[in-house]
């Protein structure tokens, strides 16, 4: 059992958890994730380790309520226990000195990009962050991002905060103004990552994305997380989750992620667990 030390909402539907997991805290590196199972009948699902505190033996997770499991997790409070948590999984981000590195986050992708952005900064890169949200209320980690950026931009789709428009527009603008960009990291919804890949492709800028296929075991045993990268089959949980954006087959990823749409809806509506959660409270 893994104890929740603190749980606070950062934005509507996005919650930050600090969880006791000493071994994971000691080992994790930027870009790695954990698999969780909240309770006995729960599913296993992946979350990126946003931060860790090896001294206190805790890790930080930032969770967006997407369906049944993430919403159930977001309903949990400090002091409650999570059945299973395993990690750190996945290949750590490849960090080196590139020169100027742009980290792009979309939605909760901002949280997933944060640790890698911080590591890029620590490696001496000039870090530009561009974080997008649909609207002002959904902007997260603004201060944290600023702290690891040489330049930090926020975009909102509806223009209610920061720059009006998509993250890709800001990226294009930077390129157009002649800024030399050596590396781009993009994490967020699939269409966003695909769009970033298309922006950088003509300029040959090395671009990395963190893929989010459906995972079950997270240890390379089931093959469920396979993605097509450069026409090869890769297992995102062991070979990734970060891959060269210009080689990823995004359409295939998007199609495969829809496979259980009907069941996910049914599961979210069945409410079986919400009852159990209320009992515990």
């Amino acid at each position: 059992m893994y104890r929740i030390v603190s749980a606070i909402f950062l934005a509507e539907n996005i919650k930050k958890f600090v969880i006791e997991a000493p071994r994971v805290a000691k080992k994790r590196m930027a870009g790695q994730f954990v698999m969780l199972r909240i309770e006995e009948n729960g599913e296993r699902f992946p979350l990126t380790i946003a931060d860790s505190d090896p001294e206190n033996g805790t890790i930080t997770l930032i969770v967006q309520g997407a369906g049944k499991s993430t919403r159930a997790l977001n309903g949990m409070e400090a002091g409650e226990m999570i059945s299973d948590l395993v990690g750190p999984l996945g290949t750590p981000s490849h960090i080196e000195y590139f020169g100027t590195a742009v980290s792009i986050g979309g939605g909760v992708g901002t949280a997933i990009a944060y640790p890698t952005a911080a590591a890029l900064k620590a490696a001496g890169n000039y870090v530009i962050t561009i974080n997008g949200a649909r609207t002002k209320e959904l902007v997260i980690l603004e201060d944290e991002m600023k702290a690891v950026s040489d330049e930090a931009y926020i975009t909102t789709d509806d223009g209610s905060y920061g720059i009006s428009g998509f993250v890709t527009q800001k990226l294009q603008e930077l390129i157009d103004t002649g800024r030399k960009i050596d590396f781009v990291l993009a994490i967020g919804p699939i269409p966003m990552m695909k769009a970033v890949a298309e922006v950088t492709r003509p300029y040959g800028i090395k671009t990395v994305v963190s893929l989010n296929p459906i995972m079950i075991d997270g240890t390379g045993m089931c093959g469920g997380c396979r993605v097509t990268v450069g026409n090869e089959i890769k297992f995102a949980c062991v070979d990734g989750p970060e891959f060269d954006a210009h080689l990823v087959d995004f359409k295939n990823l998007a199609d495969r992620n829809r496979i259980y749409l009907k069941e996910e809806k049914e599961s979210a509506e069945s409410g079986v667990h919400h009852c159990r959660l209320t009992e515990q409270m």
């Binding site: 009948n41 259980y260 009907k262 069941e263 996910e264 049914e266 599961s267 069945s270 079986v272």
Partner: peptide, 15 residues
Amino acid sequence: MKAYNFPNSDTPVFD
């Protein structure tokens, strides 16, 4: 993941 028991268990399996 006991998907045969879906939706009592959360993990779905191809119908």
